[in-house]
C-alpha cells in the first residue's frame, strides 16, 4: 500500500519542517534551550508511546533509564576517557541490557503489580545514583564534560538544539515504522488480549520484553542528551517524580500517538517555565492543570483534536 508509506514519511517531514522553522525563529539561547528540552523529553516519551500506548504495559520507573543514560554521559568520559559523543550509545547498551535482564521477571506481573515493580526498579536506580557518592557525586550531581569536535567545544545552545532535534526525528521515524509491521501489530494485539495474541502464535513475554527494552533505550539516549546539553547531571533526573512526569507526558498528549508524545512533552516542559511567574503557587497550579486536562481529555490531546476535526469536517 503506497499511501501508507508516504503517510509515515510525510509525518517525519512535517516534523522536520517544524523543527527547522523553530530553530530559525527562536530568538535567543533561552528559547533554544527550552526547545531542546522539549525534543529530549519527547524522545524519552516516544519509548513510552510504544510501551504504554502500543503494548499496553505501564512503567512508572522510566526515569531510572533516563538516569542511567545521563550518568553514562557524566561518568564514562571522566573515569574511562570515553569520547563524550560515544556515551549515548554505550549508555543505551547498558540500559537495554539492564531492561533485558530485569524485564523477564518483571513483565510477568500485570497492571498495578507491574506498576509497582517498575516503580521499584526506577527507585533503586535513583537510590544508587544518589548514594554512590564516590562515583556519582551524590545528591549534588556531577559535571558532564563537553564534547570537543575538531578542536571546537560543543557548548552552544544551538548545537544541542540541532543534535537533539535530529535524535528526535530519527526516534520518531523508527516508532512510526513499527506501525503496520508484524512487530507493531503484535504489540497492539497483546495490549487488547494477551490470550488472543498467544493463540495467534505471539510469544507474549518476548514481545513485552522487546517493547520494554526499546523504551529503556529511548529513555537512556534522552538522558545522555540531557546530560550532555546541560553540562551536568543530578539524581533528580531519575526520581519517581520524573518517571511520573514522563508517563504524564505520554498520556497527556495521547498515549498511542507520536505527535501526542511531542505535544505532551512540550506542555510539561513549557508549563513550569510559564508558571515560574506564579512562584510559590507553581506546584499547586501544575497539579490542578494535570487533573483538569486528564478529566476532560482522558485519552489525551491528540485523540481529542482528531475527534474535533472529524466533527468539524463532517
Amino acid at each position: 500500500m503506497p499511501h501508507r508509506l508516504s503517510d509515515r514519511h510525510l509525518s517525519v517531514l512535517a516534523l522536520a519542517g517544524v523543527v527547522i522553522a523553530l530553530g530559525w525563529i527562536l530568538p535567543n539561547a533561552y528559547f533554544l534551550r527550552i526547545a531542546t528540552l522539549v525534543w529530549i523529553f519527547a524522545l524519552a516519551t516516544l519509548g513510552l508511546t510504544v510501551l504504554i500506548g502500543q503494548a499496553g504495559q505501564v512503567s512508572l520507573g522510566q526515569a531510572g533509564f533516563l538516569g542511567v543514560g545521563a550518568y553514562a554521559a557524566a561518568i564514562l568520559p571522566t573515569r574511562y576517557g570515553l569520547p563524550p559523543l560515544a556515551t549515548p550509545f554505550v549508555g543505551a547498551f547498558v540500559s537495554g541490557a539492564l531492561a533485558f535482564l530485569v524485564g523477564r521477571p518483571i513483565l510477568r506481573l500485570k497492571g498495578h503489580y507491574l506498576a509497582i515493580a517498575t516503580l521499584g526498579l526506577g527507585f533503586l536506580i535513583s537510590l544508587v545514583l544518589t548514594n554512590e557518592v564516590g562515583w556519582t557525586g551524590g545528591p549534588d550531581g556531577m559535571q558532564v564534560p563537553r564534547p570537543v569536535v575538531f578542536g571546537v567545544s560543543l557548548s552552544q545552545p544551538s548545537t544541542w538544539y540541532w543534535i537533539s532535534a535530529a535524535s528526535l526525528l530519527i526516534g520518531a521515524w523508527l516508532v512510526l515504522n513499527l506501525d503496520g509491521t508484524t512487530t507493531g501489530r503484535a504489540f497492539r494485539a497483546l495490549r487488547d488480549s494477551e490470550v488472543g495474541a498467544s493463540v495467534m502464535g505471539i510469544d507474549v513475554s518476548r514481545m513485552k520484553l522487546r517493547a520494554f527494552v526499546l523504551a529503556a533505550v529511548y529513555a537512556s539516549v534522552a538522558g545522555s542528551l540531557l546530560g550532555l546539553s546541560n553540562g551536568f547531571v543530578t539524581p533528580d533526573q531519575s526520581s519517581f517524580l520524573q518517571s511520573v512526569e514522563l508517563v504524564t507526558m505520554s498520556v497527556l498528549g495521547g498515549a498511542h500517538s507520536v505527535v501526542g508524545a511531542i505535544l505532551g512533552s512540550a506542555m510539561l516542559v513549557l508549563l513550569p517555565q510559564v508558571l515560574t511567574v506564579m512562584q510559590d503557587y507553581e506546584t499547586l497550579v501544575l497539579g490542578a492543570i494535570v487533573v483538569v486536562v486528564m478529566i476532560f481529555l482522558p485519552s489525551g490531546l491528540v485523540p481529542a483534536l482528531v475527534d474535533l476535526t472529524k466533527r468539524l469536517t463532517r
Partner: peptide, 15 residues
C-alpha cells in the same frame, strides 16, 4: 495478527 508466524518478523527489520 494471525499471520504472525507466517511472516519473517525481525524486530530490527521492522524498526
Amino acid at each position: 495478527v494471525g499471520r504472525h508466524l507466517r511472516e519473517r518478523h525481525s524486530f530490527l527489520g521492522d524498526l
